[in-house]
Design a protein around this nucleic acid. Structure first.
Lengths: 122, 122
DNA sequence: ACCTTATATAACTATATAGTCATACAGTTG
DNA sequence: CAACTGTATGACTATATAGTTATATAAGGT
C-alpha cells in the first residue's frame, strides 16, 4: 500500500517526505492501545500515581489475568512503565501526553453529543 | 464491570461522578476509529479539504469497496461528514480536533523512539 | 431505453484480540 | 523447605473487523 500526495497538476504521486507508512502504523498502534474501555479504566486508575496489580484489579473489577494482559499491552505501547518491588509490580504512566489525548477526545465526544442533541431539538 | 475510585480511607468505592462507563465506551470508540492505518491515510488525504471517493481510492491504493467501508466507519464515528453531488460523494473532516490528536500522538511516538535510541546509545 | 460511471453493500475469509480458566513462576513468610 | 501471595502466561473461546469479490443502486450521458 503506497501513500500518495497530490501535486499542482492534480495527479497523485508517491509522497516524498511526510507520513511514511511506518509512522502511520505507529500512530495507529498508539490509538489502538487506547481503544478499549478496560485500558482506559487502568489509565484513569493510574492518574493519581503508580499502583500495583492487585489494586488495579480491584479498581477495574475484571480478572487478574486480564488486567495483567492489558497492562502488558499498555506497557509495550510505551504508555506505561513498571517497577518491581518484592512480590508487587507497580505500574505507572510513562507517557503523560496520554491524558491530553483523552481530554481532547472527551471534548470531541461532548461536542458531538451536543450537536446530536441540537439536531433532535433537545 | 464497575468503575471505582479510592477514598481517603484507601478503599475503592463506586465512583459517584466522573468517567461513567458510557463515557469510557465513547472515548474508546473514538480511539478505535483512529486505530487503523488506512483510516489515518484517509484523514491525511482529507487534510487539504473535501475529496470524493475515487480520489481517496487513488490516494490510499486499496479497493473502492474497502474505502467506502472505512469512510463509513469514520463518518459514523462523527469524524467525517459527507455531501452528495450528482454521481459523487464528497467526504470532509467534521471534527477538526482529530488533527490535534494525531499531532499529539506523533509527538509521543517520536519521544518514545528518541528514548529507545538513547537507551541503545545511539 | 441503454450504457457508463461513482458509490454502496452483501457475503465471505482471514486475522486479531478481549476475556476466562488453569497453571507456572517468583518472592515472602513461617 | 513448605506454604502462601502476587503476578505472568499458555491454551482456549468468542467476537469483531479489515480486506476481497461480486453485485446492487443511482445518477448522467448518448
Amino acid at each position: 500500500m503506497q501513500t500518495k500526495f497530490e501535486t499542482i497538476s492534480g495527479k497523485f504521486v508517491p509522497n516524498p517526505e511526510a507520513l511514511a507508512d511506518d509512522a502511520l502504523e505507529l500512530v495507529a498502534a498508539r490509538f489502538k492501545a487506547l481503544s478499549e474501555p478496560t485500558r482506559l479504566r487502568l489509565l484513569a486508575a493510574l492518574k493519581g500515581g503508580e499502583r500495583n496489580v492487585t489494586e488495579l484489579v480491584e479498581f477495574t473489577g475484571t480478572s487478574q489475568a486480564n488486567i495483567s494482559r492489558q497492562l502488558l499491552v499498555l506497557t509495550q505501547a510505551g504508555i506505561l512503565g513498571r517497577r518491581k518491588s518484592g512480590l508487587h509490580t507497580f505500574y505507572f504512566v510513562a507517557d503523560k501526553a496520554i491524558y491530553d489525548l483523552c481530554e481532547l477526545v472527551c471534548g470531541s465526544v461532548q461536542d458531538r453529543l451536543a450537536r446530536q442533541n441540537r439536531a433532535f431539538g433537545k
